[in-house]
Design a protein around this nucleic acid. Structure first.
Length: 489
RNA sequence: CGGGGUGUAGCGCAGUCAGGUUAGCGCGCUACGUUCGGGACGUAGAGGUCGCGGGUUCAAAUCCCGCCACCCCGACCA
């Protein structure tokens, strides 16, 4: 019997079992790398389709740059090296040969690369090295490019979707004439992410800035959307960086501006990854399995027949044809599970585990009464409806569920967001989990000290500023605004 | 990289302390039949380099030595 560990018993065990048993992904033979299975990949494809459309609507084009980056590129931006050096995979050889002892193959020592390549942990360096050749004048700007790719960061500890050594993502890399334009771009993409997270994934997020200590390596300003997971830990779900002229200077990318003067180009980069699937799982799911908001669910409606004999199944199959057609016409994905080897009860549990938003059950009783039993995954509520206008009932229900799932997550976040003024309360709230909204004296020292003492970091300085005079709970120094602290993934 | 743990069928485990027929159990899998409104049941069957290498012994999943892999907890991170 495939039941999963309860969240209250062991949250990370629950998470891992859920990912595997719902068929999203499984661990692979490669340490820290996962196999994304069709059901999990279908979610990624939905994420990708929506965002790709939004990127294009905001003027971006897709391109592709190499997975390998010459090692020397990497060292051109000092902070960037500092940030990634400890977790890059390095390609040193290009050939294998048969082992001298006849067992298998070994790396051919003769085939050592002149200059090693690193496997991209992110592509700023190779892209800015390329932009140098593409940009001469302000007329060449802006360049608005996105790429869908895989990247590798050799993390110490991994968890499927949340942190894997290899992950899939998109990275936007734009080049601009002015700082203002680049800043506006970074902010625009943050808003694209926020809208996407809240409306498609139904995950409420706090958009804002990172503190200097939490900034991307090489960024002047890092914007983030932060979500709060059910175990009270924060998750960074997407970032958008204003890179200033740092990469332009490192790669010598200059343009002739409108005043006829040479100037360094202004840059942004922004990305979201397969981590979003982890956020989706951890925000909504329960002890029965996944709960997927309808807009992101690969399968929105499943129909389960209840029957004894083959002729009964035939009858049901006929009965539901108009429903299937009607739903498909509305763009709703639907499957009819007539697998004879599984009982209805087994199927009920299985589709709950997989988070299919709406389940229809149809048996002799329903056919007699001209009804359909409709069960919604989020509340596990069951109700019978007349078959005649069932398609519009389902259509409305899916819309309602999308809202309800978001609101429930928002409510959870509000209930776990605490305004705190004393250090004692700060420590207490952090240890219980949740967002702690507190004053900060603005120094990196205090931030580091708080991290040391509580493992909490400043997750975000909200765009909607909470401006008020107060005192830092740890140091008692004056502060102008509150920021969000939490323990994070 | 420090601390702890685990490797036995596809999955989850027992057996190891105390060596001894043919290595078990549950789930899953295959076939047939009966079932089917919340994870059905019966019968028959398939499936194993006991992580790898070496040693001790008449005899090793079990004892000894070495190695490897993975998991959990910390430090590091999207």
């Amino acid at each position: 019997m495939a039941t999963i560990t309860k969240r209250s018993e062991d949250y990370s065990k629950w998470y891992q079992e859920l990912v595997i048993k719902a068929g999203l992904a499984e661990p692979s033979e490669v340490r820290g790398c996962m196999i994304i299975k069709p059901y999990g990949f279908a979610i990624w494809e939905k994420i990708k389709d929506y965002l790709d459309r939004r990127f294009k609507e905001t003027g971006h084009k897709n391109a592709y740059f190499p997975i390998f980056i010459p090692k020397s590129f990497f060292s051109k931006e000092a902070e960037h090296v500092e940030g990634f050096a400890k977790e890059v995979a390095v390609v040193t050889h290009y050939r294998l040969k048969n082992s001298p002892d006849g067992k298998g193959v070994v790396v051919d020592p003769e085939a050592r690369l002149e200059e090693e390549y690193i496997v991209r942990p992110t592509s700023e360096t190779i892209i800015w090295n390329t932009y140098r050749n593409w940009i001469q004048s302000y007329r060449d700007l802006p360049i608005l490019i996105n790429q869908w790719a895989n990247v590798v960061r050799w993390e110490m500890r991994t968890r499927m979707f949340l942190r894997t050594s290899e992950f899939l993502w998109q990275e936007g890399h734009t080049a601009h004439e002015t700082a203002e334009e680049a800043q506006a771009e970074a902010r625009q993409m943050l808003e694209v992410y926020r809208e996407f997270a809240e409306n498609l994934l139904a995950v409420p997020v706090v958009p804002g800035r990172k503190s200097p200590a939490e900034r991307f390596a090489g960024a002047v300003e890092t914007y983030t959307i932060e979500g709060l997971m059910q175990d009270g830990k924060a998750l960074q779900m997407g970032t958008s960086h204003f890179l200033g002229q740092n990469f332009a200077k490192a790669f010598d990318v200059k343009f002739l501006n409108r005043d006829g003067k040479l100037e360094y180009v202004w840059a942004t980069s922004w990305g979201v990854s397969t981590r979003l699937i982890g956020a989706l799982i951890m925000t909504h799911s329960d002890d029965n399995g996944l709960v997927l908001p309808p807009r992101i669910a690969p399968l929105q409606v499943v129909i389960i027949p209840i029957y004894k004999k083959a002729d009964q199944l035939k009858q049901i199959t006929g009965y539901i044809q108009p429903i299937i057609k009607g739903l498909r016409k509305k763009g709703i994905t639907v499957e009819f599970d007539d697998d004879n080897n599984k009982t209805p009860g087994w199927k009920f549990n299985e589709y709950e585990l997989k988070g299919v938003p709406v389940r229809l059950a149809i048996g002799p009783r329903d056919m007699q009464n001209r009804t359909v039993e409709v069960a919604r995954r989020d509340t596990l509520e069951k109700k019978s409806y007349p078959v005649d206008n069932i398609v519009s009932v389902i259509e409305d229900l899916l819309k309602q569920m999308q809202k309800d799932i978001f609101n429930r997550a928002l409510e959870y976040r509000q209930e776990h967001t605490y305004y705190v003024d004393t250090w004692e309360e700060f420590e207490h709230r952090i240890s219980e989990g949740g967002f702690v909204v507190a004053h900060w004296d603005g120094t990196a020292e205090t931030e580091a000290r708080i991290k040391e003492l509580t493992k909490a970091t400043i997750r975000v300085l909200p765009l909607e500023e909470i401006k008020e005079k107060g005192k830092d709970p740890l140091t008692g120094k004056p502060s102008e605004r509150r920021v969000l602290f939490a323990r994070a993934y």
